[in-house]
């Protein structure tokens, strides 16, 4: 390979030298010019090779397939959306039950969405009468399934729900959920929120 390149450089150099001589514009030592021409060509080849290596080195760390990077970004969005939705769905203030239910509706779709839409006046009154305030915090969550093209995902979420009753001390409930999500108009909405029971 190297021999070939040098041979080609030699051939090119010779042709250039011939041209220069024919023009007769230079009287400098022909041998020295030829020698330096060879060196210049060799240096050019070396510089090109080094440049190529540099480019390859520089490009490599960014050589993440676009699909993978996009899927990774989507996974992070799903995790954020799922965590926020699980917190919303475990949060309710007896002083504003309709507002709480509206919030639930805004983060759900499909089966769970239908269920929440089906909450009747009786249940709203019962929730208001219960007189409790629930606030939830997702302690840890992880995406376990993701289909970017189908727009579906499954997330595990471990939550801590603080229930403040009308009277008495706060109670902390710990729940673990499997959360199913569906993408609707670029938003990830919860279709099912299933508490994980112990396997017997």
């Amino acid at each position: 390979m190297t021999v070939e390149v040098e041979a080609r450089a030699d051939a090119l150099a010779d042709r250039k030298v011939v041209t220069v001589r024919r023009r007769g514009s230079e009287t400098a030592d022909g041998a020295a010019i030829r020698r330096w021409r060879h060196r210049a060509y060799a240096a050019a080849v070396l510089a090109l090779a080094a440049g190529a290596v540099l480019l390859w080195q520089g490009a490599r760390p960014d050589a993440v397939p676009t699909d993978t990077a996009h899927a990774a970004e989507t996974r992070d969005q799903v995790l954020i959306a799922a965590s926020a939705a699980v917190e919303t769905l475990n949060t309710l203030d007896h002083r504003d039950v309709p507002g709480g239910i509206d919030a639930w509706e805004s983060v759900t779709t499909g089966g769970l969405g239908d269920q929440i839409e089906g909450i009747g006046e009786k249940e709203v009154v019962a929730l208001a009468k219960a007189g409790a305030v629930s606030t939830a915090r997702v302690v840890e969550a992880a995406v376990v399934e993701l289909d970017v093209s189908a727009g579906s995902a499954e997330v595990l979420a471990f939550t801590e729900v603080t229930v403040t009753p009308r009277s008495g001390a706060d109670a902390i409930d710990r729940h673990r959920y499997v959360v199913e999500l569906q993408r609707v108009d670029e938003r990830w909405l919860v279709t099912a929120l299933t508490p994980m029971e112990l396997e017997r």
């Binding site: 030592d29 020295a32 010019i33 210049a40 240096a43 050019a44 510089a47 080094a50 440049g51």
Partner: peptide, 17 residues
């Protein structure tokens, strides 16, 4: 001169490499 030019070019290219 051509010789000077070639020397400079060689130096620049080796430097770049």
């Amino acid at each position: 001169s051509t010789l000077q030019g070639l020397r400079t070019a060689t130096a620049v290219l080796v430097g770049a490499a």
